[in-house]
């Protein structure tokens, strides 16, 4: 049976932990609101860039000498960009990205391809290294508040690797933000453009975007100034940047949401623990009182 003092010390330390987790929850909630606003602000722009890339690519008809548009003849090296956080204490936020990335790498290897890891955030970089996997480059220090310049740095690196022939495909993994309690791993292919997610069906977020996308029959009449190929030369790197920026922002919102939820759970658990410990302490105190009474009564009986 632990003594009263032991239990009291434990209660005090659990109370301290609860104070910290509550504070972290508040901070995450405040930052989440900002991150949510930035994600929402970017969405129309990102969707418009995607639509524009799609129509320009269709107008160009695939025939182009630009290295960034070139499709490599052999698929050998696949770049996997894992976007997660710099810090932990956010539930499954970091680990589910690493797990998805490692699973994708294993699938690549099964097909005879070579995966090449890129990491955004200290956590995925550290986890990959811990597993003995090589990280080609890690980008760290901005996961909670990414700037456009951060996305540009990452985009430059992967686009350079692609045009230099170091990579034949580029995929990105990030936590898509749905709500504070729900984040899902999203996987998007960025390059080559013909396989990119942008070339698929209308993306989910397009419902709220302005409906200025032309009808297919109108598309043929659009005047391109200069040629669609030249526009794509600048549009594709911009599209990659925006896609990565979007992944970073969604990931930041997800990180704050995941941390807020994790810290709320931790605070609740601490509350339950404090109740249990308080009960235990009261029992210990009552036992001590009973013990003392027994001793007094026994002593009194011994005298009589």
């Amino acid at each position: 049976m632990p003594s009263q003092r032991d239990v009291r010390n434990r209660i005090a330390s659990v109370q301290n932990i609860r104070t910290i987790t509550r504070a972290m929850e508040m901070v995450a909630a405040a930052r989440l609101r900002r991150a949510e606003q930035r994600t929402a602000a970017l969405r129309p722009y990102a969707d418009a860039i995607r639509r524009m890339t799609r129509s320009a690519a269709q107008a160009a008809g695939g025939a182009s000498g630009l290295p960034v548009l070139a499709e490599h003849e052999t698929l050998q090296r696949v770049g996997l960009l894992l976007v997660a956080g710099d810090r932990g204490l956010a539930g499954a936020f970091n680990s589910q990205i690493v797990r998805a990335g490692v699973a994708a790498a294993a699938a690549c290897e099964a097909e005879g391809l070579t995966p090449v890891f890129f990491a955004s955030g200290r956590r995925p970089a550290g986890s990959l290294q811990f597993r003995g996997l090589e990280v080609a480059q890690a980008f760290t220090g901005f996961s909670e508040r990414p700037a456009y310049a951060d996305a540009r740095r990452i985009a430059d690196r992967v686009v350079d690797a692609y045009t230099a022939g170091e990579l034949d495909r580029v995929e990105v993994f990030y936590n898509g933000y749905i709500s504070p309690i729900s984040q899902v791993v999203r996987r998007e292919t960025l390059l080559p453009l013909s396989q990119a997610s942008v070339m698929g069906a209308e993306e989910d977020g397009s419902g709220e975007a302005p409906s200025s996308g032309e009808e297919p029959k109108q598309r043929a009449l659009v005047e391109y100034e200069p040629d669609p190929e030249v526009i794509l030369g600048r549009l594709v790197p911009d599209y990659i940047e925006v896609s990565i920026y979007r992944a970073l922002l969604e990931s930041a919102a997800s990180e704050h949401g995941a941390r807020m939820t994790a810290m709320r759970n931790a605070s609740e658990n601490a509350g339950v623990l404090i109740e249990d410990l308080t009960l235990e302490m009261n029992r210990a105190r009552q036992a001590a009182i009973t013990q003392e009474i027994l001793e007094v009564v026994a002593g009194a009986e011994g005298l009589s």
């Binding site: 524009m52 129509s55 320009a56 032309e214 109108q218 009449l221 659009v222 005047e223 391109y224 100034e225 200069p226 669609p228 030249v230 526009i231 600048r234």
Partner: peptide
């Protein structure tokens, strides 16, 4: 201004995509 030169766009302009 686009990469091709200064432009002014009025209502009912022909469909255009420019840098």
């Amino acid at each position: 201004r686009t990469t091709v030169g200064e432009i002014g766009v009025l209502a009912n302009h022909a469909p255009l995509l420019a840098m």
